[in-house]
Each structure stands twice: as structure tokens, then as C-alpha cells.
Amino acid sequence: MKEILRIIIGLTISCLVAAVVMGSVFAITDRAKKHNEHVKVQETMLGLLGYGKANPPPSELRFATIYRYILNENGNIRLGYMLPVFENGRETFEFMIVTPDGDFVEKLPLKIEPDAASEGPERETALKSALKRSTIFSFADSSIVALKGKDRIAYLLPSEFPGFKTFIKVMLALDARFSVIGLEIMEHEEDPGLGAEIAQPYFKNQFKGKAFDRLKELKVVKEPLPDEYKLALEGKALGKGAVSREEVDALRQKYQGKDIFAITGATISSRAVTDGVINAAKKFSYRLKALEKVIAAQQIAVAF
């Protein structure tokens, strides 16, 4: 009996100590992790817009994020848009519900701080208190509008689609007329040496500058990537003086109308990325037009 007691006490103490150690490490690292992730996303967004250390972003640049939800109100499918709005000069969010056909249903104010809105659980609690109990909602996606003063300079679309192995997460940047500004691969688990090459500049930069009409028709071709195009995509020879900036631009211009050259040995990954990008751009442009119509009709003072 005494031995069992000793064992139990020993185990309890060691579990408690372990729990304290893990709990405190979690508390410390969790904040750092969130901060680092936030910084990384910010850097990617600025990088896609062409800003970086050498070219700091202007002070009037700001980002407005639209979160899209799918609602189920007693069997009726609705779309919910969480829109950033200006209210008495302050930025808050409003939740607008529309039917799949794009007809306005209702508009609800949300109690959420702009900083907290980037956290999924925070949004969920805000939505739960604003919506009816019986409504089931699920997060669909988010799109970010980059603004310089009052002008929209780009749309940034975080997107996710199945690749060859698991999911590929990307961030796509479109300009105001839905032409591609750039593509960044955020996360993937493709094979090193093969599918993992999608993250290399010579692949992802092929999307750069494709106009929306061209993008819709984009295909993947199984042809070797021409050397001069590869250099231009990598912007490699720039520093060495062999190819000037103008020549790089000229080369890029030359291949502008071309399809996407598949990565050797990774056609499926290349195709997955291309289809994913086309899909994201097409759906976004369609939705934005429908959304703008409703916003104009309801005269919502949106912050984008």
C-alpha cells in the first residue's frame, strides 16, 4: 500500500513539473510564433508589391482584408462577407449577408477590434454573438486589398489547393485589372529536387505580368524552358552586367504570351499550381464584381 502511494505521489509530482515546464514554454513561444508568422505574411505581401528593404513602402500604403464565410440559415445557403468599414473615422467591421445569386439579405455590425480580426477564433466569437443561434457558419477565404491612399493598387489572395503530395499554399497578387503582379509559394510539401522547384523564381515568376484574359486560358506545356527566359525570370545576370535591366524586361515581354513551362519531372505539381492560380483569380474577379454591386446599392462606407 505504502509503495503504491509512493509511486502515485512520484508520478503526480513529475507530471506537474512537466506540465509547468511545457505550459510556460508554450505561453512564451506562442506569442513569438504568432508575431513571426504575422511578420512573414506582411513581408511576403510587401515583397509581392515590389517593396522591400531597398525600397521601403510609402506611409499611405495600407491593407484592408475581406473575410468570406459560408452560412447555413435553416437550410438556406448564404454568403457572409466581413467587410472593413469606416465609421466615424474609425475602422471597424461589418458583416453583410447575401444570397448566392448576389441579392442583399441583411447587414450586421460586428464587435471586433481591427487588430484582432486577423485571428480566426476572435472572428468566430464576434460572429457567434452577432448571428442567430441556429445559423451555422464556416470560414471560406480571405482577400486583401492593398491601397495607396484611396487608390486600389493590388489584390492579394491567399489560396490553397492540392498539389502532388499535400496542399500547396500560395499568395497571389493581382493588380486592379486582375493581371498577375506576382506569385509567392508560402507552404508546400512537394518532393525536393522535383515538385519543390515550384518555389524557385524560374517557375513562379512565369506568372508575373500575365493579363487576366491570358491567365484564364493559361496552359502548362511540356517544353524545355529556354535559357534566356530562365535567366530573365531569375533576374540573375542583372548584377554581373551581362544582361541589363532593359534586356531582362525585353525578354520577359517576348515570352509574355507564352504558356507556363512545366518543371522537368514535376508536371503534376506545375499543373496543380497553374490551375490553382487560374481558379483563384477567376473566382475572385467574379465575386468582387458581385460584391461591389451590392456595396454600391447598399451604400456601405467600405474601407477599400
Binding site: 513561444t29 506562442d30 510564433k33 513571426n36 508568422e37
Partner: peptide, 9 residues
């Protein structure tokens, strides 16, 4: 694991 996830993501 937590430390690596936070500092070298």
C-alpha cells in the same frame, strides 16, 4: 518543438 516552431518557422 515549440521553440523551433516559433523562432525558425
Amino acid at each position: 518543438d515549440l521553440m523551433l516552431a516559433a523562432f525558425v518557422p
